[in-house]
Amino acid sequence: MTTKRIVVVSSGLSTPSSTRQLADRLADDTATELRERGVEAEFQFVELRDLAHDIANHLLLGFAPPKLEAVLESLGRADGLIAVTPIFTTSYAGLFKSFVDLIDPDALTDLPVLLGATGGTPRHSLAIDYAMRPLFTYLHAVPMTTGVFAATGDWGTGGDGVRSLPDRIRRGASEFAEAVDRFDRTAVHGDPFALDRPMGHLLGGLAGE
């Protein structure tokens, strides 16, 4: 069975966090959708709250402590990214943006990204489209058409009256799973172990031929 690696980034600040809860739900439905396609999902969950000091140090000093560096490197090997943030003052959290600023500009090229956000009122739901989507498009990632916003009133209710939160999660996860299944990192970035010229040339010292 094919295995796809998915990084799940959550930038909730409280414990427990509705942002992490939404991230978990998106991951669970994605795993189900991929399994139906004969694909196994391997998830790496990242709580930015736990990396806040490392992120600040990287921004101030210019280098990543080992734990943060490992997370950033994992994005360069991932087949998909689930990114979920709380919405503060009509946009993503500062911690979330600070983390994104540290990502290698090439790491997210053509990478499928499922966007999620949480907030107190459905009025913040548009932040996915006017704030989060342009951010990841700028990084050459491929955000899914369906972004999933969860307001406080969505938990344990029928949702917004048009499509319930579970329905929206399922729809976003389905789109994301299809994109992850198709994604081929070697086609985007090439094989890092490939030789830049034939082996015979390397052995024979024929560098430019």
Score class of each variant (00 low, 15 high):
residue 71 V to A: 08
residue 145 T to G: 13
residue 196 D to V: 11
residue 106 D to W: 09
residue 99 F to D: 02
residue 102 L to C: 12
residue 172 G to E: 01
residue 76 G to D: 00
residue 200 G to N: 02
residue 74 S to E: 12
residue 173 A to N: 12
residue 155 W to H: 07
residue 190 G to T: 08
residue 91 S to P: 10
residue 196 D to K: 11
residue 149 F to R: 11
residue 192 P to I: 13
residue 112 P to Q: 07
residue 157 T to H: 08
residue 143 P to K: 06
residue 200 G to D: 01
residue 139 L to W: 01
residue 189 H to T: 00
residue 121 T to E: 03
residue 120 G to C: 07
residue 195 L to T: 14
residue 198 P to N: 15
residue 83 A to V: 11
residue 182 R to V: 12
residue 159 G to D: 07
residue 169 I to R: 04
residue 133 R to F: 08
residue 147 G to Q: 02
residue 188 V to N: 01
residue 188 V to A: 08
residue 154 D to G: 11
residue 182 R to F: 09
residue 166 P to V: 05
residue 163 R to E: 07
residue 109 T to I: 00
residue 113 V to Q: 05
residue 148 V to Y: 02
residue 120 G to S: 03
residue 84 V to K: 06
residue 103 I to T: 04
residue 109 T to K: 00
residue 179 A to Q: 15
residue 123 R to G: 15
residue 127 A to K: 05
residue 123 R to W: 05
residue 142 V to K: 01
residue 183 F to Q: 14
residue 167 D to C: 02
residue 91 S to V: 15
residue 175 E to H: 01
residue 177 A to L: 01
residue 145 T to C: 12
residue 174 S to L: 14
residue 185 R to G: 06
residue 154 D to H: 13
residue 82 I to T: 06
residue 96 F to A: 02
residue 68 L to H: 07
residue 168 R to E: 00
residue 139 L to D: 04
residue 109 T to F: 02
residue 127 A to N: 09
residue 182 R to L: 11
residue 169 I to M: 11
residue 69 E to T: 04
residue 160 D to I: 01
residue 196 D to I: 12
residue 194 A to W: 15
residue 132 M to L: 13
residue 110 D to R: 07
residue 137 T to V: 11
residue 73 E to F: 05
residue 165 L to K: 14
residue 148 V to D: 07
residue 161 G to Y: 13
residue 80 G to E: 03
residue 156 G to E: 10
residue 182 R to I: 08
residue 202 L to T: 15
residue 169 I to T: 11
residue 181 D to N: 00
residue 123 R to E: 11
residue 144 M to I: 10
residue 107 A to N: 15
residue 147 G to M: 13
residue 189 H to Q: 01
residue 178 E to G: 11
residue 128 I to W: 03
residue 125 S to N: 03
residue 82 I to N: 05
residue 136 F to E: 12
residue 181 D to E: 06
residue 91 S to T: 14
residue 199 M to Y: 02
residue 106 D to L: 14
residue 65 P to S: 03
residue 90 T to M: 13
residue 153 G to N: 14
residue 178 E to F: 01
residue 91 S to Y: 10
residue 90 T to I: 12
residue 142 V to I: 04
residue 159 G to F: 14
residue 134 P to F: 09
residue 83 A to I: 14
residue 80 G to Q: 04
residue 172 G to W: 05
residue 199 M to W: 07
residue 171 R to F: 08
residue 176 F to L: 09
residue 194 A to P: 14
residue 175 E to K: 02
residue 138 Y to V: 04
residue 106 D to I: 08
residue 156 G to L: 05
residue 193 F to P: 00
residue 105 P to W: 06
residue 75 L to M: 00
residue 197 R to D: 14
